[in-house]
Nucleic acid binder design. Structure first.
Lengths: 141, 141
DNA sequence: CATAAAATTAGTATTATTCTAAATTTTTAA
DNA sequence: TTAAAAATTTAGAATAATACTAATTTTATG
């Protein structure tokens, strides 16, 4: 099934992150926007949104798609885990683009507890290799 | 689909590892043995084996299931990646059982190149936390 | 309001995973 | 060596995730 710590699949993870990324911009998050961003057709996007809705991570507000509190919490966890790994991989000599790519493949599988231990181990760096805050970062991966 | 570096799914990865693990023991790897070990019914095990066969990682030899050269190569990669991560996680303070568990969730997703960089970074340890050789280890995860 | 755009529903397809039941093949033991 | 037991394989079905097209419905907008 999902094999993930947060009970979501890779596509659902991508969907969650895309919704957050679009919300941060000027555009309201409409399905058409989401489907454009994810390069999938609207019914496919709707299917993903519905699944996230069923899982309580997303809701619809006047036709706009927004994250629930739970959705935001999971989003923050995923971003934290992502940045910790990305930082670590780049530190090991992996190129930034690839590190980001690889981190995306398991940031939704691991858990925050483990990421926190790694964060400690690597010296609690302030910023990820993209220059974004690792701790309390609320931006985009 | 598979999201994996080796073009296999998590179950196929588990199947590959189980076949290798059983081969190391006295038992010949028969389907019944595999299905028992994986706690799945024989037709399900057969389905997995057939998929691995189609992908060229496994073949049948007088009713016995064996890894092909390609299967062995991928097996070794997965074990190496697994042990490197397991070592790193335990080193960060993650408990061994959990580290092994987590490593199993992405050892088939990452690639050896990255694992080698991490291996260097963490000081090329000889043995994984289970006490098994990390480099040239051919045993069991 | 009428039309255009967006969202949703309906229906289909594929891949992965898993099962049960039945058929076939192989092994083993009398 | 052959009958019974065990193992394997085939057939058929189900579920979940992903994704599509075509059609319908709803919402916006000129």
């Amino acid at each position: 099934m999902d094999n993930s710590n947060f009970g979501i699949t890779k596509k659902e993870r991508d969907c969650l992150l895309t919704i957050k990324r679009i919300s941060s911009s000027d555009f309201p998050v409409k399905l058409s926007e989401l489907s454009r961003s994810m390069k999938i057709k609207p019914p496919t996007a709707l299917e993903l949104v519905s699944r996230l809705e069923k899982k309580g991570l997303v809701k619809k507000n006047k036709g706009m798609i927004v994250l629930t509190e739970r959705g935001k919490k999971i989003y923050r966890s995923i971003v934290f885990i992502h940045r910790v790994f990305e930082y670590f991989l780049v530190n090991c000599g992996v190129d930034l683009q690839e590190a980001c790519n690889k981190a995306s493949k398991f940031d939704y599988i691991l858990d925050e507890k483990i990421a926190r231990l790694i964060f400690q181990k690597i010296g609690q760096p302030n910023k990820c290799p993209h220059g974004r805050e690792i701790l309390e970062g609320n931006g985009i991966i």
